[in-house]
Design a protein around this nucleic acid. Structure first.
Length: 282
DNA sequence: CTCCAGGTTCCGG
DNA sequence: CCGGAACATGGA
């Protein structure tokens, strides 16, 4: 590979790709193989540098959010024991800048699915309906565009093991292909307005909308509450309190974790998922 | 076999 | 506004 080196301080590539924010990267040799938009990409971390194909420096720097002030972000987290433990555990994890549609779409397919299966669905959709791109003999696939998915039938998507999510993905793809929801226009919306707009898409509720805002629109304050984070909130921040409503949890997390709440959320999520494991297995 | 997974939507109280 | 149930599929 005709490669270039990119400075990457305060960055852990593997952690960033494996923490559950993005699902299509696969290990290849000492690095990772994936697609950024329609650009095939191989990335390998060597200390505080990334080894990448020459000419992709700008794209890689932007995608991996190497410009995010990570020290400042981590310093903004609340100083409680759970948050400190998560911060140590996730050192170098960054919230990357994913293309909006592929982010929305993958999280529509994520409902009631394990991370491994979300990745499996993403790969199936890419292979069948995404643009084929090549990198040094490897065949990779971009995420299918809204237009590509919009012309399919629900059966086609059910055949990709989407289950009841097929109708939602199709409906959302069609609304965006038709221009009924304009992702380009989101830049001038504040977080609440953007969230409201996202929730017009079928299969997008509060949680998926917040994932899209956080991972696809760089709204680093957005705080998705999934089953794992709900457990964390209830057991750590509201211990032995019965009947704490979801709206109470939302209200708390929207203010307590501060301006980089989305980062705090992802750190808590990954730490909990990797250390709590399953209750039975201990 | 049973349980649960980065939820959303609809329905009855 | 709130709690429950249906919704598909596969891994543990």
């Amino acid at each position: 590979m005709n490669s270039a080196r990119l400075a990457a301080k305060d960055f852990d590539l593997t952690l960033t790709l494996e923490c559950g924010q993005v699902f299509h990267w696969v290990r290849e040799g000492a690095g990772w193989l994936g697609v950024i938009g329609e650009l095939p990409m191989y990335v390998e971390q060597q200390g505080e540098e990334l080894l990448i194909p020459r000419g992709t420096e700008e794209v890689a720097r932007d995608y991996f959010a190497l410009d995010h002030p990570l020290a400042e972000i981590c310093a903004s987290f609340p100083e409680d024991p759970a948050m400190q433990a998560a911060r140590e555990f996730c050192r170098g994890m960054r919230i990357i800048r994913q293309p909006a549609w592929e982010c929305i779409a993958t999280f529509i397919t994520s409902s009631m699915k394990q991370v491994a299966h979300i990745a499996q669905i993403s790969h199936t959709l890419r292979r069948r309906y995404g643009k084929k791109v090549a990198w040094e003999g490897h065949t990779l696939f971009a995420y299918p565009t809204p237009q590509a998915l919009a012309q399919l039938e629900e059966e086609d998507l059910r055949a990709c093991a989407l289950g009841y999510r097929a109708k939602n993905l199709l409906g959302s793809a069609r609304m965006i292909a038709d221009g009924e929801v304009d992702l380009e226009a989101f830049a001038r919306l504040d977080d609440d307005a953007a969230r409201e707009e996202l929730c017009r898409l079928p299969g997008v509720g509060e949680k998926v909308a917040n994932c899209a805002l956080l991972f696809g629109f760089e709204r680093v304050r957005a705080f998705p509450i999934d089953v794992w984070i709900e457990r964390v909130l209830r057991e750590i921040y509201f211990p032995r309190k019965r009947r704490v409503t979801v709206s109470r949890l939302r209200e708390f997390s929207a203010t307590y974790f501060g301006a980089y709440g989305g980062y705090a959320q992802q750190y808590l999520f990954h730490h909990a998922r990797k250390t709590w494991q399953r209750k039975k297995a201990g």
